[in-house]
């Protein structure tokens, strides 16, 4: 900031100041738009159905229904679902990041003939919509006796997120300086050491980014869970929402409360991971 102003200040400080103010006003307006949904969701979670549909959506709940939260906690198996969501998400994200990094490293850093072809095959995986694969997948897991086993969801999450993750990693690997890795090779470093001790640390920012994206996808996913899991003991939070969708009547306030509860852990994880994005390549490359 200081630097920007000192260099720019030489030319035209008033114009810069006006420009900066306009910029800030714009940025803040956008910020309001972006944070409002969270506030809205919180209000929503304290409303009854008649308030949800009748009143202006801006209106504050007249008689906040905190009992929505109590109901969500007692009527649904929320605490169990919560635990399942956490561990299934964590395992899937870690698996995806590791496998995707392996593949991207092999494709961009190692020399083999088929690398373009294999990359293409991964990219095609990006193009398959979940709904067109769900029925064959079900029979596949049925054959393997993996229906109603969390492994079926973890593997599906990993497989379906791999193409996206590889694509994003790829863009970064291409722009990443290779000198350090090359130097390491000259020093006689083993390939695994290069990968784990140089490349992975250097890609922290993008790993954090893809971790966030993967985490959000897995956390909010419900089609796989619904289809592959039938026991309560393996279900995840998104299924908790369904608990409030009835045959003819849906309890929207309770859904709001479930959504609100389920966003908290992911918000925290997001804030933590999001800081890792900034810890740039510089740190990794100097110390790696």
């Amino acid at each position: 900031m200081a630097q920007t102003q000192s260099t720019a200040g030489k030319d035209n400080s008033i114009l810069t100041k006006v420009g900066m103010s306009v910029l800030y006003i714009g940025l803040i307006i956008v910020a309001v738009f972006q944070i409002y949904p969270l506030i809205w969701l919180f209000q929503f979670s304290l409303k009854s159905n008649s308030e949800v549909f009748g009143m202006s959506p801006f209106a504050l709940p007249q008689d906040p229904k905190w009992e929505n939260y109590v109901r969500v906690w007692t009527d649904g198996n929320i605490n169990l679902y919560f635990f399942n969501s956490v561990w299934i998400t964590v395992v899937s994200v870690l698996l995806t990041l590791l496998f995707a990094s392996f593949v991207t490293f092999a494709i961009t850093r190692m020399n083999w003939k088929l690398n373009k072809l294999v990359l293409g095959l991964f990219m095609v995986g990006l193009m398959v919509p979940i709904h067109s694969a769900i029925i064959p997948l079900f029979s596949f897991f049925l054959e393997l006796n993996l229906i109603d086993n969390p492994l079926s969801i973890i593997l599906s999450y990993t497989a379906f997120n791999l193409p996206l993750t590889i694509m994003i990693l790829l863009g970064f690997y291409y722009t990443l300086p290779r000198e350090i890795e090359e130097a390491a090779v000259v020093d006689g470093c083993s390939i695994h050491r290069i990968f784990f001790q140089i490349t992975l640390p250097m890609t922290t920012p993008v790993l954090a980014t893809t971790a966030i994206i993967n985490m959000i996808y897995n956390w909010n996913e419900f089609i796989f869970v619904n289809t592959f899991i039938s026991s309560d003991k393996f279900k995840t939070l998104t299924v908790g929402i369904q608990n409030f969708i009835g045959q003819y009547l849906t309890d929207w306030g309770a859904i709001g409360a479930t959504l609100m509860i389920s966003i908290i852990p992911i918000l925290i994880a997001f804030l933590i991971l999001s800081n890792r994005i900034v810890e740039g390549i510089a740190a990794g490359s100097v110390k790696g």
Partner: peptide, 14 residues
């Protein structure tokens, strides 16, 4: 590992 996963869970089904 990744390749087997996507072949089994994405290519197979599609």
């Amino acid at each position: 590992p990744a390749f087997i996963l996507i072949v089994a869970l994405i290519y197979g089904p599609i």
